[in-house]
Simulated scan of single mutants.
Amino acid sequence: MKAMIMAAGVGSRLMPLTKDTPKPMVPMTNRPLMENIVELLGRHHFKEVIANLHHQGESISGYFDDGHDFGLKLLYSPEEVLLGTAGGVKKCEWFLDETFVVISGDALTDMDLSELLAQHRKRGALATIALKEVENVEQFGVVLTAEDGRISRFQEKPGREEALSHQANTGIYVFEPEIFKYIPAAQFYDFGCQLFPQLVEMGAPFYAVSTQDYWCDVGNIETYRQANVDVLQGRVAMKPGGIVLEDKGKSRVLLGEDVELGDEVNFLGHVVIGRGCRIGSGTVIKDTVIWEQSEIGPASVLKDCTIGRQCKIGSGTIVHPGTVMGSACKVTGNSILGPSEGL
Rank of each mutant, 00 (worst) to 15 (best):
E138T: 15
D148P: 03
V81M: 11
G105C: 03
Y189R: 03
F100T: 05
W94C: 03
D148S: 03
V174W: 03
K90P: 04
A125N: 08
Q187P: 02
D148I: 00
Q155T: 00
S152C: 10
E133Q: 12
E79F: 02
L108V: 08
E176D: 13
A86H: 07
H166C: 12
V174C: 06
A107W: 08
D97H: 10
F180H: 01
V101W: 03
E147V: 02
T99S: 11
E156F: 15
L113P: 09
A168L: 10
F175V: 00
A130H: 05
L96Q: 00
L96H: 04
K91M: 02
Y182T: 08
R150S: 12
I172C: 05
L83D: 05
F100G: 05
E80W: 00
G105L: 04
G67P: 05
V142H: 06
K90R: 15
E115T: 10
E178D: 11
L164M: 14
G105N: 02
F191I: 05
N136S: 15
L117G: 04
F175K: 00
K157I: 07
L131V: 15
L83I: 08
F100I: 07
N136T: 14
Y173N: 01
K122D: 15
G159D: 13
A118K: 14
G71L: 10
W94H: 14
L96G: 00
L131M: 15
E176W: 04
L164T: 10
Q194W: 07
L113Q: 12
A185Q: 11
F196L: 13
G87I: 05
D190M: 13
G171S: 03
S114N: 10
S77P: 01
K73T: 15
G71I: 07
S165E: 13
L75W: 12
E80T: 07
S104P: 03
G105D: 04
H120V: 08
P78M: 08
E138D: 11
Y189W: 14
E79H: 06
E135I: 11
V174S: 01
F70H: 12
G192K: 13
